[in-house]
Amino acid sequence: MNSSAQSMPQSPKRLRNALFWFLGVGFIGFLDSVYLTVTRFIGEPVACGFFTGCEVVASSSYSAIAGIPISLFGALYYLFWMLLGVWYLDSRNPLFFTLLPLTSAGFVASLILTGIQLFVIDAICLYCVLSAASSTALFILSFVIRKAGSGETLATIHSPQI
């Protein structure tokens, strides 16, 4: 960890920007999922303004697995990535890059959940779309970060600490 100064990436600015976007998008996804989870636990309807699909989707049988709302899984998912992003900023541990392909799990889950909304429930929930967009953005950003950080990974791998 002390070698972080020696192992700066070749494109540090790009990596830093991508990381901040990653954290920002993660935070938006987190807020969105927390909102859905909180409305569910408090028992308030989801405020969707002119859109009517929110309540239909948020109250459907597909909105929970074994009684646990999917939005809670979503919130934990975004929390995981945010904490991991901060952990990388703090530690520069290349394990972060190794874990990044796991964002594909969120991407696939979003595809499935959007599919269920479109073809099974036949209603679209604005907040779920926002979450799907967030996890898709995290997935795309994971490539950018991996590419921008490849210099750093190599540098760290070849550093004596490893």
Binding site: F27, F30, L31, V34, Y35, V38, T39, I42, E44, M82
Partner: peptide
């Protein structure tokens, strides 16, 4: 993160 969650609960309530 804690402020975000607390703020959200407050806003929903």
């Amino acid at each position: 993160l804690l402020l975000a969650v607390a703020g959200m609960i407050w806003a929903v309530k």
